[in-house]
Simulated assay, not measured.
Amino acid sequence: MRRLVITCLTLTLLTGCGMDDSTDPLQVTDTLTAATPATSPPATTPPAGTVHPAPPTQHTAYDRDTRTLVLAAGPQLHLIDTTNGTRRTLDLPAPPANIHAQHGQVLAALPDAHQITRIDLRTTTAHPTPVAGAPVDALDLDPQRTAIALRDTGTITIHNQGQPGTTTEKFQGPAQLLHHNGQVYVLDRLTTAITPINTTTGDKGAGLRAGQGATNTTQDRYGRILTIDTRGQALLAFSTDPLILKQRYPVPGAPYALAYDPTTDTAWVTLTATNELVGYDIAGGEPRERHRIPTISQPDTLALDPDTRTLYIASANGAGYQVVRM
């Protein structure tokens, strides 16, 4: 049985194996483990740009409306005005598992506090909403609806005006959410897969294997889903109508963090094994390396200001955050 499951996974789509198996069709082992960044060596090349002090940082985000860089360091948010460098801090009841910044606010999922929190970046005020099930990501679909990934139940729930509504079947390890053309796409780090869901019915579409150990994902302006396969050391690109793997490009060096610049069609990827940031032109049929930049050590997280083409790389071991203007 195990041999048949693995054989089917070598194909692109994962719904045509013809098996009667109650287990997750994307599961290829009984013990699932999410991929992690490499432990970086000490930085031997001076980092490009400028480096500023910061505690060990797990997540970054950038808000274009307020020109604010957000660093999540444990349960504390550091809000940095990138026009003048002033910094504010905000204590949260628990560390966020994901943060998203847009339109002057941050949306943070706090699994250990069982809540999602909206932070007004202009007033530095937090507005929490209790959410049972340990939310690990939250994404606004429109002014009324928010998709929330839940760690404890392994499900995605669509909240309508703050009230839980449509809920999906169980995932193994839902970690990140994307929204495109009315569908939500779920990155499952345990099964290392991308799966679309219908936000009205909660039905799952055909899931697709995303390499050997997918960790982070984003979208480009063509609607493609860009995904980092850290364990397989590759940059993947999926079309979404239908969901098909279009590109797999080798990226040695334990790639981890990912950001996309729509003004230059550049996918920026941090390499945690070599302390580097690489920029790939993805406008054509195959990614082309255009930039390779030395970074601070342990560059686990990355944010981008597309208006000024400024990159913000933050270290997970306390080496600070790096500002690189292209």
Rank of each mutant, 00 (worst) to 15 (best):
A283I: 14
A54G: 09
E276W: 04
L139D: 10
V323Y: 05
L208F: 00
R309Q: 14
G207R: 10
V324N: 01
L110I: 04
T274G: 00
A193K: 08
A273C: 03
D220R: 08
P25I: 11
T33W: 02
L79N: 04
L235F: 09
K170Y: 02
A73D: 08
A319P: 07
G213R: 11
A48W: 02
T168W: 09
D120Q: 03
D81E: 03
G104L: 02
I6P: 00
M19A: 12
M326P: 13
H100S: 14
D265L: 09
P96G: 00
D120Y: 03
Y62K: 04
A273I: 00
G165C: 09
L304V: 02
P299D: 05
L304R: 04
Y249N: 08
V186N: 13
Y62E: 07
L79W: 04
V5W: 12
I194V: 10
P55K: 03
I293D: 10
R151Q: 13
H179T: 08
Y280P: 08
N275A: 08
Q161C: 08
D120C: 03
R325A: 15
R3V: 12
F238R: 02
G74K: 08
T12G: 15
A108C: 07
T33F: 06
P53L: 03
K204E: 09
R209P: 01
L141T: 05
L245V: 00
P75L: 04
P250D: 09
A193P: 07
G284Q: 14
A273M: 03
A43L: 04
A214Y: 05
A257E: 07
A34T: 05
I244C: 01
D112W: 02
H180D: 14
A210R: 06
G202T: 11
I148D: 06
L4R: 14
L90D: 06
N98M: 15
P37W: 04
S297T: 15
Y256K: 05
T270Q: 02
L271P: 00
I197T: 13
L271S: 07
T123I: 02
P93K: 01
